[in-house]
Simulated scan of single mutants.
Amino acid sequence: MPKPFTNFLTILLLCALAPLANAILITVEPDDYAAGANLTNVSPYVTLNVVSPGFPGSDVGSIFADDNGALGDPNYVAPTGNLTFGNHAFFVFGEGPDYGGFKMTFNQAVSNVSLLANNEYPPGLSAIWAAFDYEGNIIGQGGAGQGVPLGETFEINISLNDVWSVIVGGDATTAAINFDHLTFEIDDLVAVPAPAPFLLLLLGLLGLLIRKRAH
């Protein structure tokens, strides 16, 4: 077999067997844990905290699986199951400014972050969010839930790339929105599927070629 063809066959086989980089969807669901469980470090991909800005500095606390709702109503229904990440307000403090609320800090750049939420504040309340890059610069801001009826579930969608952290909470510094079911995408290597017939054929040809050259 001519050497150029041998090289081509080898390169084609290596390319075909190379792992592919794809987006992986990560989910953190409070109902996967017991009520009251500390959820701060339950995922290797994200750290969950509640941040309360002040002077000097900000207080950073843990997030717990909450089953009471913002107002402690025994009839409260979570967006999914029975538990949430708790209820949080969105704060802007100082000239920096410093932001407070439910903070998600990712261990690598992520994209397409989403949360489920519902509101227990009778006059109506929107959820406000801010997304940040690796250096802490704001790369996007927005809101969700405006006009959604009391208690009904709505989705917070953050369709951005290169997100390293997100802070979200109830507008008007009111902690009456409950947050639930966090999802986000990361880029990672996926397992290579079982070889297709074409790949098996290439492996066979390469094996015959190596055997022939060995004799």
Rank of each mutant, 00 (worst) to 15 (best):
A37G: 00
A37Y: 00
N38V: 01
N38C: 00
N38H: 02
N38Q: 02
N38A: 00
L39I: 02
L39K: 01
T40P: 01
T40C: 00
N41I: 01
S43L: 02
S43Q: 03
S43K: 03
S43G: 02
P44K: 00
Y45T: 07
Y45E: 13
V46Q: 01
V46Y: 00
V46K: 00
V46G: 00
L48V: 02
N49M: 01
N49P: 01
V50P: 01
V50Y: 13
V51P: 02
V51S: 01
S52L: 10
S52F: 12
P53D: 06
P53W: 04
P53I: 08
P53T: 05
G54S: 15
G54D: 08
G54Y: 03
F55S: 12
F55Y: 14
F55M: 14
P56Q: 12
P56H: 01
P56Y: 05
P56C: 03
G57C: 08
G57Y: 14
S58R: 15
D59M: 11
V60G: 02
V60P: 03
G61D: 10
I63F: 07
F64I: 15
F64R: 15
F64V: 12
A65E: 12
D66K: 03
D66Y: 04
D67L: 06
G69Y: 05
G69S: 09
G69C: 10
G69H: 06
G69I: 09
A70V: 07
A70F: 07
A70C: 14
L71Q: 12
L71D: 13
L71W: 11
L71A: 10
L71F: 12
G72I: 04
D73T: 05
D73Q: 06
D73F: 08
P74K: 05
P74E: 06
P74Y: 10
N75T: 15
N75C: 03
N75H: 13
V77D: 14
A78N: 12
A78V: 08
A78R: 10
P79Q: 12
T80Y: 15
G81R: 09
G81T: 09
T84V: 08
T84Y: 14
F85Q: 04
F85R: 09
F85L: 10
F85N: 08
F85I: 08
F85T: 06
G86V: 09
G86Q: 11
N87S: 15
H88Q: 11
H88Y: 14
H88P: 07
H88M: 06
H88K: 07
A89Y: 06
A89P: 04
A89F: 01
A89W: 05
A89M: 08
A89R: 13
F90T: 04
F90M: 11
F90E: 05
F91V: 12
F91L: 09
V92C: 04
V92H: 04
V92I: 14
V92Y: 07
F93L: 12
G94M: 04
G94I: 02
E95T: 08
G96N: 15
G96W: 11
G96L: 15
P97C: 08
P97F: 04
P97G: 06
P97E: 06
D98V: 04
Y99W: 11
Y99C: 06
G100I: 03
G100R: 09
G101M: 02
G101P: 07
G101Q: 06
G101I: 03
K103W: 07
